[in-house]
Design a protein around this nucleic acid. Structure first.
Lengths: 106, 106
DNA sequence: CCTTTATTTAACATTTCATTTAATTAACAT
DNA sequence: ATGTTAATTAAATGAAATGTTAAATAAAGG
């Protein structure tokens, strides 16, 4: 599975999107602080965090028995770059198409 | 289901990502031309195209018995904007954090 | 009309994914 | 050592997604 695909898959779940949003807005948080907001059990959150970790969208560090999670900006950057590269190409194509039509029309 | 979630979900499948890429690079194509490259049956492609349509990532127009599909730039733009807004916020947070640490340190 | 071509819908089997409860691991405090 | 808290892993279950073949729909052409 290609990295960009993994990123999209990781963010295609509402719970995981909320987790990432929370980590971005509130900063580093222990796993336990993420469960209540999502309204599901701790094991479920733990699994979601694993998916996000494997997609490179969050990082984990230990602090005693707690696991502190943070958003990982490089993960978001990958998505931004993928999207941007496509948009750029697409808009370039449009310009070429326009030019071709102008020639035909003239 | 929120629009951005639908977009991510639509692009979390390898076949659909390939379809979008192909439409972006090659321009408008009939449904039938997308199946061979993906190595799956026409009905399967048709379903993927439906998902992409409902996510606003492609558009369809009729031409006789054929259905011509194109990538839809607004769809990509939504993803770009979502990602960018998070990155911006995140980087802003980093700056504020740095500033706070500097104050403490001084 | 009847046939052909392009695509979609239906029905069904299979796989994958998300969640829950129960069990396990790890750190810490008494 | 023992118990407690935080988190993850395991096992089981139900729901959703994906693919296939067969049937339905729709436009075009003889």
């Amino acid at each position: 599975m290609t990295p960009i695909l993994k990123s999209f898959a990781a963010l295609s779940d509402e719970t995981r999107l909320m987790i990432v949003d929370q980590l971005i807005t509130e900063g580093e948080l222990p796993a336990g602080d993420l469960a209540p907001g999502a309204g599901i059990s701790a094991p479920a959150i733990s699994r979601h965090l694993k998916v996000l970790r494997e997609a490179g969208l969050v990082t984990q560090r230990a602090d005693g028995t707690r696991r502190l999670y943070s958003a990982r900006p490089e993960g978001l950057r990958m998505i931004a770059e993928w999207t941007q590269s496509r948009r750029t190409f697409w808009e370039g194509s449009l310009k070429r198409l326009e030019a071709a039509l102008m020639e035909d029309g003239a």
